[in-house]
Amino acid sequence: MPDATLTLVGRGVRLSRRNPDALVTAMVLPVMLMLVFVYFFGGAIDTGTGTSYVTYVVPGVLLLCAGFGASTTAVRVSEDMRAGIVDRFRSLDVGATPILAGHVGASLVRNLLSTGLVVGVAFLIGFRPEAGAAGWAAALGLLFTFVLAVSWLSAAAGLLARTPEAASGFTFFMMFLPYPSSAFVPIGTMPGWLHGFAEHQPVTPVIESLRGLLLDRPVGDAPWVALAWCAGLLALALALSGALFRARTR
């Protein structure tokens, strides 16, 4: 029933809007981090890509946003499970999928805003991508596929956590994942034991694709690897959240 999903996305967006603290954090924190990276560390980092550091780092900051926005989903889902509202939705024959999709949809909307903000500020401080319309469309399409997958994974985490506080612990993990990747520094500069993880974790192909697409450079098979990761994570999240929802509502 797409009607129910749309209604619940509307609800999710309203709940996000009325939670100004969380919203401001989700908007401002990535911008702050970007400024810190560019102005404090940027001078010392040689990315070896021949572009300014800000241009190098923008895709990484966008993924930080994605992780952050998605992790809020875990908290919201967990809050819903604790309150009686899920029982009420179920008694209206609204099941797990629309309930979770409502929160995931809100996460996509939040990310749309934070992405716009980060890109806007990045332009002000010297971000100069070379992508045409097609490159931008592909980059944003991939970014939001990734946001979709991690948001749904985050919804599953919200079902797993017994309390919203525990669910918010998930924030840390999602925020951390971009660091051991090529998001902020080239993987080659990391200690050898990290290479294996950094090269093969899901964030890296997404970053490489975004960077390549935005700079209009050859991307190889990175976008396909990234899409495969997203599809796999999404399938896992769907199966996991379905099973967890049934277990939580016996």
Binding site: T7, G10, R11, L15, N19, G84, I85, V94
Partner: peptide, 22 residues
Amino acid sequence: GQYAAVDDLQTGAENLRMMGRL
């Protein structure tokens, strides 16, 4: 249910309209 199931962050009207749509 025994314990109130409304969204604190939505207005009364929004809560009811949402239930109506659902």
